[in-house]
């Protein structure tokens, strides 16, 4: 439990049998249920999403409520899950496709890059692909190989796609509503380390969520720390320690939308703080942190008082789970990097 997290809408750790609020899994399930109730065009498709309720139970119970025509247990074929969803979107539906793990989404990449992202453009606006591709991603749950990577840069790099990552149950609820409403394809990456790690109360109506807007989680002047997904929790821990031990208050930003990136928000914060630390679990090279850094340079170069710093996963594959914590940015690494930045 940390105060900064709690104060800033980052929820509370789940403690014992306490069932206060909703997990991210429950929040996403609720968002799906709400959208499917109000819009019969919304269908869910993926491996094991029906009877089994999804391997993480994200789609639990939907098939009972909406039937197997709208909650489609698909054969095991990622490319067709994406491709069939594109076809359904072209013919008036609003499919929400699930890739069971982001590590298997590459099999669908040709459909996503080749068609979902391009059909509106190719047809000069005559066609549209209003679909959402949900996928759990990221490390920290002691999973098998292929189940722990953070490859948001793959999707963020594709024109015509929007890529969002929620960092809490409440934001997942709000952002999934926004993603399904969106007229264009949205890649919705779910940090599975947060699926059940803490709970938050959900509002009756989903919060406002505008795709393309970063969110200031904690205001501060000493430096800007930008993170998203599961990295926001260790960042807030490090920030709390920084305040406690060094009396320096960091501004913490949840990027939330990977693409289109909120460049003005980055520039605005960095021009106030003069220092930028970016924390991601993706590998360093050619990664999303580089893009964030460049936006800060373009928009706030003359305000920079220190070199921009990146704390990221290493340029290795995510190790098997016994050593995965060595791969992930820890609160200590983040804290140390922030202290270094503040020396300038």
């Amino acid at each position: 439990m940390n105060d900064a997290a709690d104060k800033n809408g980052m929820g509370r750790e789940s403690a014992g049998n306490e069932r206060h609020g909703k997990t991210m899994v429950e929040a996403i399930n609720r968002a799906l249920r709400e959208v499917m109730e109000e819009d019969e065009r919304v269908v869910v498709i993926g491996q094991d999403v029906g009877v089994d309720g999804g391997v993480f139970r994200v789609t639990d119970g939907l098939i009972d409520e909406f039937g197997s025509d709208r909650v489609i247990d698909s054969p095991l074929a990622e490319s067709a899950i994406a491709g069939v969803s594109i076809g359904m979107a072209l013919n008036g539906l609003r499919p929400v496709a699930e890739m069971q793990f982001s590590g298997f989404s590459y099999l669908a990449f040709a459909q996503v890059e080749g068609h979902a992202a391009r059909l509106r453009w190719r047809s000069r606006g005559g066609l549209g692909v209003p679909m959402v591709v949900r996928m759990p991603y990221g490390a920290g749950v002691r999973a098998l190989e292929h189940h722990s990577e953070s490859r948001e840069a793959f999707y963020g790099h594709v024109p015509g796609l929007k890529t969002v990552i929620p960092a809490s149950p409440r934001r997942a609820h709000a952002l999934l509503h926004a993603a399904i409403r969106d007229p264009d394809p949205v890649i919705f990456m779910e940090p599975k380390a947060l699926y059940r790690s803490f709970r938050e109360d959900l509002p009756e109506a989903p919060d406002e969520a505008e795709i393309g807007r970063a969110r200031i989680v904690q205001q501060g002047e000493a430096l800007t720390i930008i993170a998203w997904g599961a990295m926001l929790r260790p960042v807030l821990k490090a920030a709390a320690r920084l305040a406690e031990e060094a009396g320096e208050v960091a501004e913490v930003i949840d990027l939330e939308t990977i693409a289109p990136i909120d460049a003005p928000a980055i520039a605005d914060s960095v021009s106030r703080t003069g220092r930028l630390l970016i924390v991601t679990e993706a590998p360093l090279s050619y990664g999303p942190a580089g893009e964030v850094a460049m936006r800060a340079i373009e928009g706030a170069f003359f305000s920079l008082r220190a070199p921009i710093c990146r704390v990221t996963g290493w340029d290795t594959h995510v190790p098997f789970f016994a050593r995965e914590q060595s791969y992930l940015p820890s609160p200590q690494r983040i804290f140390d990097a922030a202290r270094e930045l503040l020396k300038h």
């Binding site: 067709a80 491709g83 069939v84 076809g87 359904m88 013919n91 459909q111």
Partner: peptide
């Protein structure tokens, strides 16, 4: 696959 999705829809 698009053809299948269109048909199902």
């Amino acid at each position: 696959p698009h053809a299948v999705g269109i048909a199902h829809a």
